[in-house]
Design a protein around this nucleic acid. Structure first.
Lengths: 153, 153
DNA sequence: ATATCAATTCAGAACGATTCTAAAATCTAC
DNA sequence: GTAGATTTTAGAATCGTTCTGAATTGATAT
């Protein structure tokens, strides 16, 4: 416990290393966003969310840079894009193979560890194609099934 | 064979019935779009694609109506929305439980029959939540794996 | 048929997320 | 420091989609 908010001592070291490894120049913005994203637990963010968060942390970064950075981090394998909602993109700091619960009402994503779910009997992909990724999205809603016509909010 | 392009005899009957069942008035536009969608084999369309297709078939429908219709059909259970691409929505005429191959390069979707793929060991959803749908998206690419740094288009 | 009235369509404006532009600021190497 | 490449940025542009309110159409009663 008390191990993952390593923000007090050498706050930048961890992120700095990751940027270096990825071949990305450690600019002020990338360091700051990297800290928001990679210090602490795994998370799922949209560009707007990260932008708001940066603003609250009094980090001045333009929205354009948020987008640039998210895409560069994704290309470098530091993030993974999750498509669950036509219209907005989520970025996941957990880049290991895993899946998601998605609450459509709140927009919240929750990881499902790969080991806890298995996809079997996958048919072979069309000729000349290879599988680049398998995404399982389990959409969830507040419990209240079976009702249909008489539901009036 | 030769059974599914029932466009020659009683072309509207089939679609008309489906609209009736769904409680949707059989307007000129809904009939025309219904024919494009439901006569012939199962398919996956975006709003723009359907709009273009209607134009080619010399059916005059506004884009707003395309969107209205796609959503009404979806609400009525005649279509199913498929989210594979942040930015654009696909609508699938196959409303049975099934999954998809998705070619990110071409934007093509291909059905995977439910019986051919199974998801097991799904962990229970978060407290107070129930599963509304499980989507499996198998992203595919042209075969040429393992290459990484030396790929220069 | 015709009038009536609700449901539907439509063109165009508005919108939200994202990408583009090209000018200014910042990094790195010397 | 300085030079040159990279990065950031504000704002415009773009894209897919939704909204608006007026005009049209469809269903029903007459």
């Amino acid at each position: 416990m008390g191990m993952h908010g390593m923000s007090t001592a050498r706050p930048y070291k961890h992120v700095l290393d990751r940027l270096q490894e990825a071949g990305l120049r450690p600019t002020r913005q990338r360091l700051a966003l990297g800290r928001l994203l990679f210090e602490g637990e795994d998370r799922h963010v949209t560009a707007e969310q990260l932008h708001a968060e940066a603003r609250h942390a009094r980090i001045s970064v333009s929205l354009a840079t948020i987008y640039n950075t998210l895409h560069q981090f994704t290309a470098a394998g530091l993030l993974r894009e999750v498509v669950v909602d036509a219209g907005r993109s989520y970025f996941d700091t957990n880049v290991h193979e895993h899946h998601h619960f998605f609450n459509e009402e709140t927009g919240h994503l929750l990881d499902i560890e790969e080991t806890r779910l298995s996809v079997s009997d996958l048919p072979p992909p069309p000729a000349g194609m290879c599988i680049s990724r398998v995404d399982v999205i389990v959409r969830v809603a507040r419990t209240e099934p079976a009702i249909k016509a008489q539901a009036a909010e």
